[in-house]
Design a protein around this nucleic acid. Structure first.
Length: 597
RNA sequence: GGGACCGUAGUUCAGCUUGGUUAGAACGCCAGCCUGUCACGUUGGAGGUCGCGGGUUCGAGCCCCGUCGGUCCCGCCA
C-alpha cells in the first residue's frame, strides 16, 4: 500500500487542524451530494468524516463516487475544522473532518448481507455465517475488548499474588464421569482415543502434588452436551488451585479477583464481603442454587397453613413427605386474569412436571379466588398478616411430593414473573457465595449415589460419620460464586488422603479395580505426599456476559457455535476423506455413510 | 431424548386465519439529479426455487406428513 496510516480513525481532534495526515479504514457510510461527498471512515478506534470536493480534486471525487459500504480505503488530506453549525457533537472526531487530497482503494467489498452499522439488520443465523462482518460491529468490538481487559485483570491480579500460570494438556485421558467427552482418535495407537478436557481438574491437582502451590490458567474446556443461551461446547475457564488452604482462603481469593475484575474492567465497586448463603437456604428462599438476589419475592413456607386447611391436594402432598411453598407477587392481582394464570399453570406443568399452580388474590382486606375457599377467614387473615400481604397482591402456591421439585418450580416461577414484570434492576451486580452443597445425590438412572460436584470433593469433616449412615445428608466443602442468577464460579476443597478417596469411590459404587483403571494415575500420585488443596474455576464467558450486559454467550466469543454445535461460518463439523478415516482405523456405520458421500 | 417458536427479494418483514389473476413494503443494490451531510435528500430501475422432499386438491407461499437449519426451554451439563 502506498498510503499508510499516520493516525487512527478515532483520534483526530481540533488539535490536529492543518496537519496533513493519512487514515486507513472501512467505509461506514457515504453521503454523495453530487457536488460534495462525505464518507465516514471507520476502524476499531472510531470514525472520522472525510470529504471529497469535486472543485479541488475532481478526479479523486469522481473515484470516490464509485465507493461502497465496507470498501477499505486509504486517504491523505488535511485536518480541517467543520464549518460553524456542522459540528457533530455525537462523534469524538465531530469537530473536524479530513479534506482529502489523495485516495487509494485498498480493497472493495461485495454487497453486504447485513449492515455493519446495525446488527439488527441481519438474523443471528446470517451474522454467524458472516461472523467476520459481525466482528466489525460496535457491540462485538466492545465485548471482545471487555474480554481482553478481563484476561489482563485476571493475569495481573493472580500473578501479583504468587500464582503461576501453567498450561495443561488438551489431549488427555477420557474419564467418563460427568459430561460427555469430545474424543480424538489416535493414529499411532489403533482403537484408542484421547479426550478433550471437560476441565483441567486432575491436572491441577497433580500440579499441587507437584509443588506448584498456587496455580492458575485461562483455559479452554470442552463438554459434548446440549447447549443453551449461556453454554457453548467449548468454553473458557479461569482455573485456580491452591495448596495448604481451607475454604475461606479460596473464597477470599475468588472474591478479591472478582472485585478486581469488576473494578478494572467496568469501574464497578462490588461489596467488600460477598454475602454467603448455604445451599439449603438458597433452595428454601429462592428455589435455586444460583439465586438472583437483585429482587426479593422470596419463597414462603406454607406447610402449617396447608395442613390446617381443607385442601386435600396439599394435605396429601405433605402427608407423603412433600413440600408446599408460596410466593407473593406484589400488586399484580388485577393484571393476572384467569387466562394469564392458566398460561403460567401450563408453563410450570410442562417444564417442571408439577401437577398444578394454585393461587389466591388479595382484595378488600381479605384473600379470595383460587384456593381461598379451602381456608377459614381466620386462616386467611393470619396468612395476610404473616406475609404482610397488601390488596392487589397475588399469591402463588406449588406443592409436590418431590420437595426439591416444588422449590425449583416456585423458584422458576419467581424468575419468570420478575422477567415479565420487569422487576429485575439492570446494571447492578449482586454477588454471593453459595456454600455447603450436598456431597452426593441419588442418581435414579445410575441407581446409586453420584458426586454432585466431582468425586474428588472433600466432605465437611463433621459430616464424615454420615458417609456410612446417611450419605445424602453429607455436605461437601464445595462452593459456588453466583452473580445475578448466573453460576460464575464453582469449586471445592479436594480430598488429599487416599483412605478418604477410596471411601468416596466406594460410596459412588466404584470398585477398587474400576477406580484404579479410571483414576489410577491420580491415586498413585496421592501416595507421594499430597498437600491439602482446593480451588475454584470461573466460567470466563459468563463473567464476560455479565461485564458486557448480554444474555447471549455468543456475543462474547469471537467465533461461536450454534445451539447444535455447528460453526455456520466454516461449516464445522464436516465429513472427512475416506483416507483420513482409514489412517485413524475408523469406519463409519452404514446408516451415516450416504450422508458422508 | 422431548417441547415451543421461526424459515417468503441481498436483508428485515407482511401475506398463511378463510387455498384462486401479476407474491407486496422498507432497507440495501444499480442508474440519474443534488456543495454541508452525518439514518442526507430525491427520481427511476433491477431483483423471488416462498428452506428442501413428498402428499391432499382442478389449483398450495397458505392445508397435511417428513426432513434440514436457527432460537429459546425441559432433560442433560461431575
Amino acid at each position: 500500500m502506498r498510503l499508510k496510516r499516520t493516525h487512527t480513525c478515532g483520534e483526530l481532534t481540533a488539535e490536529h487542524i492543518n496537519q496533513e495526515v493519512i487514515l486507513n479504514g472501512w467505509i461506514a457510510t457515504n453521503r454523495d451530494h453530487g457536488g460534495l461527498i462525505f464518507i465516514d471512515l471507520r476502524d476499531r478506534y472510531g470514525k472520522t468524516q472525510v470529504t471529497f470536493s469535486p472543485e479541488k480534486v475532481p478526479e479523486i471525487a469522481a473515484d470516490a463516487k464509485r465507493l461502497g459500504l465496507e470498501d477499505v480505503i486509504a486517504v491523505k488530506g488535511v485536518v480541517s475544522p467543520r464549518p460553524k453549525g456542522n459540528i457533530n457533537s455525537k462523534m469524538s472526531t465531530g469537530e473536524i473532518e479530513l479534506d482529502v487530497t489523495e485516495l487509494e482503494v485498498l480493497s472493495e467489498s461485495a454487497p453486504l448481507p447485513f449492515l455493519v452499522s446495525n446488527r439488527e439488520s441481519g438474523s443471528e443465523e446470517l451474522r454467524l455465517e458472516y461472523r467476520y462482518l459481525e466482528l466489525r460491529t460496535a457491540e462485538i468490538q466492545r465485548s471482545l475488548a471487555i474480554r481482553h481487559k478481563t484476561y489482563q485483570a485476571t493475569r495481573s491480579y493472580l500473578a501479583e499474588r504468587n500464582f503461576i500460570e501453567v498450561e495443561t494438556p488438551v489431549l488427555m485421558k477420557s474419564t467418563p464421569e460427568g459430561a460427555r467427552d469430545y474424543l480424538v482418535p489416535s493414529r499411532l495407537h489403533k482403537g484408542r482415543f484421547y479426550a478433550l478436557p471437560q476441565s483441567p481438574q486432575t491436572y491441577k491437582q497433580l500440579l499441587m502434588i507437584g509443588g506448584f502451590d498456587r496455580y492458575f490458567q485461562i483455559v479452554k474446556c470442552f463438554r459434548d452436551e446440549d447447549l443453551r443461551a449461556d453454554r457453548q461446547p467449548e468454553f473458557t475457564q479461569i482455573d485456580i488451585e491452591m495448596s495448604f488452604v481451607d475454604q475461606d482462603d479460596v473464597l477470599n481469593l475468588a472474591q478479591g479477583l472478582t472485585r478486581s475484575i469488576f473494578k478494572r474492567v467496568r469501574g464497578e465497586e462490588l461489596p467488600e464481603e460477598f454475602p454467603r448463603m448455604s445451599y439449603q437456604e438458597a433452595m428454601e428462599t429462592y428455589g435455586s442454587d444460583k439465586p438472583d438476589v437483585r429482587f426479593e419475592m422470596q419463597l414462603r413456607e406454607f406447610a402449617d397453613f396447608a395442613s390446617e386447611s381443607q385442601f386435600e391436594g396439599f394435605k396429601s402432598v405433605l402427608a407423603n413427605g412433600g413440600r408446599v411453598k408460596a410466593i407473593v407477587a406484589e400488586n399484580l392481582a388485577d393484571k393476572y386474569s384467569r387466562k394469564v394464570i392458566d398460561g403460567l399453570t401450563d408453563w410450570v406443568k410442562t417444564y417442571y412436571g408439577v401437577k398444578g399452580l394454585a393461587f389466591m388474590k388479595a382484595e378488600n382486606g381479605g384473600l379470595s379466588g383460587g384456593i381461598s375457599k379451602f381456608f377459614t377467614d381466620e386462616q386467611l387473615a393470619s396468612i395476610r398478616k404473616r406475609w404482610d400481604v397488601a390488596d392487589n397482591d397475588i399469591l402463588f402456591f406449588v406443592a409436590d411430593e418431590d420437595g426439591e421439585r416444588a422449590l425449583q418450580t416456585l423458584g422458576a416461577l419467581r424468575l419468570e414473573i420478575a422477567r415479565r414484570e420487569n422487576l429485575i434492576p439492570e446494571n447492578i451486580f449482586k454477588p454471593l457465595f453459595v456454600l455447603d452443597f450436598p456431597l452426593l445425590e441419588f442418581g435414579p438412572d445410575a441407581g446409586r449415589y453420584v458426586a454432585r460436584h466431582h468425586p474428588f470433593t472433600s466432605p465437611q469433616l463433621e459430616d464424615v460419620p454420615l458417609m456410612e449412615s446417611d450419605p445424602a445428608k453429607v455436605r461437601a466443602r464445595a462452593y459456588d460464586l453466583v452473580i445475578n442468577g448466573y453460576e460464575v464460579a464453582g469449586g471445592s476443597i479436594r480430598i488429599h488422603q487416599q483412605a478418604m478417596q477410596q471411601q468416596m469411590f466406594k460410596l459412588l459404587g466404584m470398585s477398587a479395580e474400576e477406580a484404579e483403571r479410571r483414576f489410577g494415575f491420580l491415586l498413585k500420585a496421592f501416595q507421594y505426599g499430597a498437600p491439602p488443596h482446593g480451588g475454584i474455576a470461573f466460567g470466563f464467558d459468563r463473567l464476560i456476559m455479565l461485564l458486557s450486559g448480554t444474555e447471549n454467550i455468543r456475543d462474547v466469543i469471537a467465533f461461536p457455535k450454534t445451539t447444535s454445535a455447528m460453526s455456520l461460518m466454516d461449516e464445522a463439523p464436516s465429513f472427512v476423506d475416506e483416507k483420513q478415516l482409514k489412517e485413524l482405523h475408523i469406519r463409519l456405520s452404514e446408516d451415516v455413510k450416504p450422508a458422508a458421500e
